[in-house]
Design a protein around this nucleic acid. Structure first.
Lengths: 218, 218
DNA sequence: TTTTATTTTTAGCCTTGTCTAAATATAAGG
DNA sequence: CCTTATATTTAGACAAGGCTAAAAATAAAA
């Protein structure tokens, strides 16, 4: 069993590994966890003992397959709870992180599996991030900003970057939400604006909008 | 803010106060929490400092109104989550305690209030225990066993004592669940069996059944 | 290649919540 | 009322996780 603190370290290292693509430094972990490097050293040594990560003094750490699986499971729970909070309790997308941060540590495989079913086995959380499956595998389909899409490209809305009430309301009005299919009909290089198709409608979006909407292309 | 451990002590003392009806002894707390009396002394002194309970050496403790409110709030969360687990995730009545024991410590008033609404503002948990309101007030309507009811008395099913699958299935078959209204039509003193009315049906229940079903009378 | 700057680790201390063993109150029995 | 039994508290220790300050490695610059 892993303590709350240990789970949080594993999760942080998991995320940093993906960002940095390689060994994760002590300082990087300390910064992300908002603790001191000395505390990180201690914990990382303990986790190396438990064989969930490999650690060489002064060289950084990498999760072992087992450590990666544990981290992915915490993230799975975090994202499933986020879906619950938004879909069932009608929280806004940007209000759920802190609460999910607590809920992700509840220990019960049965609970997770039932929650997953209750939510309809979602693939993405309300921010558009993929939910790892029970084995820790993630559908790794790069999400990108709508503004990075080319003309005629199709994608599925999987999340937002900015989460202001105004922006969410704008999306509501345009009937854009998680899972909405979007096709880029045209792109104006001068101001970065686009014409997109959503369902039967097609309309204009400014660069500001396009830069804050994540889509998953295939 | 109160730590998980502190919340658990407050909850335990709250329950003991109700059972014992008076000052709660150090040993009683230790037994209920499965810790040593010396640990209890330490914690109780700390909680007295925080003015959530009053404590006189060698004399036992009593919650202050503030302490009682905090305890009731933890219990409120526990019972709301139990309702969620049973009603929404289809857990059995007897499978939910451990998980609720974890969920009760999640900190977010907004979450609790939304959960409450999502569940339809329930008054009782799946075991028939009353759910305190947000101010810590409990509808104190003594629940009693069906077997303790007199002839012609009416009551509402609020829970069970035994939670075996067989018993729950029996209740299912007889369409008895939380909220079901029951009227005692007759009582046989020789073997403790009863004839009761449930909805349109009336049928016979053995003493064993009547001794494991809680009803709330008014 | 030295010297300086940065990163990382070590050493020692703190808090929380627990424990054991010993000391002290209170309660019970003769 | 005195003695034994039980309940409770104190004292000292420990593990988890964190911090500070100082030491040691590594990296960067001269």
């Amino acid at each position: 069993m892993f303590s709350r603190a240990e789970e949080n370290y594993l999760k942080a290292i998991y995320h940093l590994e993906q960002q940095i693509q390689g060994e994760v430094s002590t300082n990087a972990i300390a910064e992300r966890m908002d603790t001191k490097p000395s505390s990180v050293t201690d914990m990382v040594q303990k986790l190396a003992e438990k064989e969930v990560l490999s650690y060489k003094k002064y060289k950084g750490t990498l999760l072992t397959p087992n450590g990666r699986k544990i981290a992915a499971n915490v993230i799975r729970k975090h994202r499933l709870w986020e879906v619950f909070l938004v879909e069932k309790l009608n929280f806004q997308w940007d209000e759920v992180h802190e609460i999910a941060e607590q809920l992700e540590h509840i220990q019960s495989d049965e609970l997770v599996s039932r929650l997953d079913r209750f939510l309809g086995n979602p693939d993405f959380d309300p921010h558009g991030d993929p939910i790892p499956d029970k084995h820790g595998n993630v559908k790794r389909t790069e999400k990108k900003l709508l503004s990075e899409c080319d003309k005629n490209q199709r994608g599925v809305c999987v999340g937002v970057k900015e989460t202001s009430a105004e922006f969410l309301q704008y999306l509501d009005k345009r009937k854009i939400s998680i899972g909405t299919k979007i096709k880029v009909l045209g792109k104006e290089f001068f101001d970065g604006s686009m014409i997109i198709q959503v369902g039967g409608d097609q309309f204009f979006v400014s660069q500001k909008i396009a830069e804050n909407l994540y889509v998953q292309t295939n």
